[in-house]
Nucleic acid binder design. Sequence first.
DNA 1: GGTATTTTGTACTGGTCGGTAAATATATAG
DNA 2: CTATATATTTACCGACCAGTACAAAATACC
Lengths: 202, 202
Amino acid sequence: MTGNTNTIGRPRAFDVDKALQKALEVFWEKGYEGTSLPDLTEAMGINKPSLYAAFGNKEQLFLKAIELYENRPCGFFQPALLQPTAYLMAEHMLFGAAAASSDPNTPKGCLMVQGALTCSDNANSVKQMLIEKRRGGELQVQQRLERAQAEGDLAADVDCAALACFIGVQLHGMSIQAASGTSSERLHQVAAIALQAFKNAT
Amino acid sequence: MTGNTNTIGRPRAFDVDKALQKALEVFWEKGYEGTSLPDLTEAMGINKPSLYAAFGNKEQLFLKAIELYENRPCGFFQPALLQPTAYLMAEHMLFGAAAASSDPNTPKGCLMVQGALTCSDNANSVKQMLIEKRRGGELQVQQRLERAQAEGDLAADVDCAALACFIGVQLHGMSIQAASGTSSERLHQVAAIALQAFKNAT
DNA sequence: GGTATTTTGTACTGGTCGGTAAATATATAG
DNA sequence: CTATATATTTACCGACCAGTACAAAATACC
């Protein structure tokens, strides 16, 4: 779908994956509604009909950008869930988020948060999608904690939902701070405080 | 400026303060750019020329809404700073934010965060203003902690800037969670975990 | 009453939004 | 070569954006 597999007809003059990468950066920086089509076409180096032919429309392009975001900049998330203990999971989550939110090579903050935190009525479906993505991530953390509980890695009286929400607060809160210009070092300090809190809460 | 002090001419048919309150709610819900002038005029019960005559323009109206927000929904902030100890300050901050972000009588989340977290180039001044407001709040927390240090209320080796940033992360993170639908009860649980972390970090 | 002053309602402006029609350009297939 | 298929370019579409001109309406002052 994204690759240029056609052998017939005029070939594409741009790299679809590179263009998507550029679109991701713009959406990340300006949000879904703050990004205009000229913003996108300029960054991607293509014109509007090419964009529509390759990606559908603005919303579908955003969905593809989110997908890419989950695999690359937010790529610390799934591996963190696979860590052998709840503590190591929390550690990888917190420090991974601190690093990703303040990565000097990408826009600051988290696309899942700032992509469409608020919006006009037109973009409510996008906003809702991001809400569900965030809640889905938190649920995965909760389920990982519950698994740790079943494995005896975590005390039985720990409230896994509350603890997962606490971790979510750290991830989202750090992304806001990063978007406000907080340094990577400071975020790592905060992650360390939060990790200590996690340890004490278990 | 906001009151109808004129004695001459046709009197205003609406209450400026009530209209501002309505504008605040819309901005809070949809963000600065997500809010259109029809959104505003409909909620405020007035038409555009009345809005412009009373408030200047959209950006100035937003500034007035922010001012109102700081005094009312975000009114827990300054009193928290006045608490006699750093711990009590943190307690009031965390639980005040948990309550305000999930208040059933207002939009969810924090206007300072979701008013313009990302935006188009046109609204960069608004986004920047909110960034500075957030950083200003964090600085006030930091200075309050430094005062506590000077008073012997807080150990000398505590990193006040890091701790203030940690509190900022909680406030902003909880507001994201609230905007995602997290319940007031859950946020209070998280605030309790964070308060414990604050205690252990001091 | 009449006049000055302010607000109101309506209609409009130029500009930008997301999205597309139509023509041209570049490739393969025969 | 011709025919077909796809991509690119340019120009355009209706809708909406923030903001305003203008005239009618409602008050106070005289």
